[in-house]
Nucleic acid binder design. Sequence first.
DNA 1: GCAGAAATTAAACAAGTGTTTGATTAATTA
DNA 2: TAATTAATCAAACACTTGTTTAATTTCTGC
Lengths: 218, 218
Amino acid sequence: MEIFYKVSAVFTQKQLEIMKAAVEIFADKGFDNASVRDIAKAADVNVAMISYYFGSKEKLLEAIFTRHVLKIREKLEEIVFASNVAPVDKIDLIIDTYIDTIAANRNFHLLMVREQGVMKNPVLYEGVKSMKLKNNALIKSAVKAGVKAGIFRKNADVLFLALTVFGTINQAFNTRRFLCEQHHIDPQDDGEFLKAIIPKLKSHLKALVKSYLLVKES
Amino acid sequence: MEIFYKVSAVFTQKQLEIMKAAVEIFADKGFDNASVRDIAKAADVNVAMISYYFGSKEKLLEAIFTRHVLKIREKLEEIVFASNVAPVDKIDLIIDTYIDTIAANRNFHLLMVREQGVMKNPVLYEGVKSMKLKNNALIKSAVKAGVKAGIFRKNADVLFLALTVFGTINQAFNTRRFLCEQHHIDPQDDGEFLKAIIPKLKSHLKALVKSYLLVKES
DNA sequence: GCAGAAATTAAACAAGTGTTTGATTAATTA
DNA sequence: TAATTAATCAAACACTTGTTTAATTTCTGC
């Protein structure tokens, strides 16, 4: 049984501008350490506009989560409808889509990873949970198809496999500075980071997951 | 060339008590959202004692990092001195030691994972970095031994393999609540979580890493 | 038991927080 | 164009924050 987080969420242009500035500052400083005055300045609006448009700083965060969870879930739907691909290619497709989607929303993702450990707000928690359930279901169906085709191992722990996929991706984005240093890349240069790390991350994860899933022929 | 974070760090009993209370509250609420009054109350001391003993809230955090980084690095040294074990068993040993050490320091670890994405304090960053370098060197030497013995693949990307190992472990502890729900465990029950999740996490990670490293015999 | 140091305390401090107010301007509608 | 609604603003609000002060208690060495 699936849980849908929020059916619709319509935002005005101004709200979207504030949300865009906010997600950047939240990702940079963390939610608690980012002041509404910081956000207002970055979005070039008066401080009062945040309460005016969203009700509170907390509700602004909720709005950001609502929007991104919906956006990302939509993106994931594409995978579901890619039906007639071989199980091995589906694994590749899933990993590519995940990494590209997370890279495209990396500020939000950073914020989410950071906050999920201490999340007490039920709106945020349920939003993230719905995403995770979707992710797990997606990976499970791909693994099942491979098992049915007789090429994937039967005893794979899908829940922990998902843990590894997202854990690896999260770790890559969360320890970006360290990763850049090890690759002699300027941590500030966003384009350079994506160009150098993303392909490596993709091929590593694909090789790892497939060497785990594919049954050994002796 | 190795970088040592701090040579010595001696703390009084009172300081240790405050640090113990602080690490729990930091892990629960996050550093920014935890007030010195919260910590003082939990440690059953006056608020002023935090400044008196540590200088500031920030320096208290530094003290916590210093202490734990040293503690964990000591634990990792044990692996280095376990020389005459087979490469495959060394991988198992590394994974077991990592998970046990992180589980034993899970509050600190939660705090570290949460803060590392937005870390600007050089003392904290360098501490974490020294740990990561140690970890990577450890995994690298284990993989190299396996390659030399002709049982591990030559083209393994050790940096990304380490990313996966720690990413998976971090994800397990950071999404503890979700993981507990999926396993029908009470998230509050610490003992139950460790008993149910840790063994699964260990065996999953071992199976995963080894199926990746071991060369396929066709 | 007394002098000096260390530890502890309640209170005060200045700075920053999220939010609200009430007035002013801009946009929309009739 | 006049009336009504929406948007914007600077200022004020109440509150919490980390830190310091200055007085007091507790401990320590002689």
